[in-house]
Design a protein around this nucleic acid. Structure first.
Lengths: 242, 242
DNA sequence: CGCTATTTTGACCCAAATCAACTTACGTGG
DNA sequence: CCACGTAAGTTGATTTGGGTCAAAATAGCG
């Protein structure tokens, strides 16, 4: 929040946004979308490496990713950093802050990005008038919970290679939903950040990716990934050894 | 849901419930609490070991724990079970199901328990008329997200003994908030369930608890725990070795 | 173009998993 | 109420996946 400058104040209406089918306005009619758009008075441009918000900051707003890519991470008491999520276009940042009215994680852009600020009090207000919006918002929060459970499952019982497989497939699906290639994409985050998210060390991430490549399942060249065999990749997760 | 019988249909008003300060009605006035209470037309008694709901079941309602203790767990593709949460008095079950309109986990009573059924559509309806209820509901969902992040952090970077310490302290706080002893309580779940939740095997849980006992930090006798030295227990987590 | 951050790969080590044996608690039915 | 059978917990021995340490290769930035 601190050092990000405003891109535009008005004229950034949801009604004309290409994301209205995957972002907050899902399912809303023209008037409702208009109403929602009126909330969004600020958009911010966050450059790669910059913070959108820091842990401890008073919670006022959620942020919808307009484009770009973010990570959220918590710092624990002895300074170690753990990534709690990656967020792409159309996803909502800051949901964890509602409960305590303070942000509980640092959120950082992994590429040059833009977000729409959604003042939370106002969002709640208009939710009262737009039941569908309220409902969709609840679904979004619920989806975050489900996503976290998925990660908990990975960390609980899966081997490194299986975690990576699940991670790549998850990214793949999310890219697909946004109209990007599901088999060919760029990893915006470092090996260390992937590892932190999955409960692994960066060396293990690197080795596991190399192994998947040796098996011909993926092709990886630094940040560029190609999923060559989604079927075998999924089977990695299901525990079938072949 | 299947085999639980109804305890009462009316007359189970939030207004007279001893949990109204930790459950959904937090902060509501008399009339609002009355309105909320009108939603709760069914309470169920779930006996130890019985399911409240199964994965895949169509989502209709949330359930507030009136008394007792529950676990939720997801089954992964090859049949392994992973505990995603433990729930006690006043907490809400089923939040993960909102997003897909199907329950994504099995929820099982770990002791004889009672729940209040909260029809979700109706909850959303009256939320429109009771902004504070809506807001509080959002806080509850957000709290679940934060709790999951905490577990992710434990699984990501912590050693077995540290995870156990954090787990015990978390239970301790939650018991305290409900007016029970924060230093002396019964573990409703098995070592295996604790392990599953924390990403450890049951033997490791057992060994870690034994070690904490040897150090004099806790006293543990089967399911009975006493926290003898909360200070040292917290320091386990912070990474200070002494 | 040079400097730094990131990634890869290798060698070695350790915490927790696994395998196993035994003990203790608990619920059930006689 | 007790005895039995099963489930849960403890503890030991051994194995191993991933962590740690180290060094070299590569990419990306200013």
């Amino acid at each position: 929040m601190a050092r990000n400058y405003i891109v535009s104040t008005a004229e950034s209406k949801c009604a004309t946004c290409s994301l209205r089918e995957i972002c907050l306005p899902v399912g809303l009619d023209k008037d409702e979308t208009e109403l929602l758009g009126d909330l969004i008075n600020h958009k911010y441009r966050i450059r790669r490496g910059e913070h959108l918000f820091h842990t401890g900051l008073a919670f006022k707003s959620l942020y919808a990713v307009r484009n770009g890519f973010f990570k959220s991470c918590v710092l624990d008491s002895d300074g170690r950093q753990q990534v709690t999520g990656f967020y792409m276009t159309g996803e909502l940042l800051g949901l964890d802050a509602i409960s305590s009215e303070k942000h509980t994680c640092d959120t950082v852009a992994l590429e040059d990005s833009e977000v729409c600020e959604v003042p939370f009090i106002k969002l709640e207000e208009i939710s009262r008038r737009i039941p569908l919006l309220m409902h969709h918002f609840h679904k979004i929060m619920s989806r975050e919970i489900v996503q976290d459970h998925t990660i908990m499952m990975l960390m609980g019982g899966r081997k490194a290679e299986e975690r990576l497989a699940a991670f790549l497939l998850n990214l793949s699906e999310r890219f697909a939903k946004r109209g990007y290639s599901s088999t060919n994409f760029i990893l915006r985050m470092t090996r260390e950040e992937i590892g932190s998210y999955l409960g692994l060390k960066l060396e293990t991430v690197s080795r596991s990716l190399s192994r998947l490549q040796e098996e011909g399942i993926i092709t990886i060249n630094n940040k560029n990934v190609r999923l060559n065999d989604i079927y075998r990749l999924s089977h990695k997760i299901s525990g079938y050894s072949d």
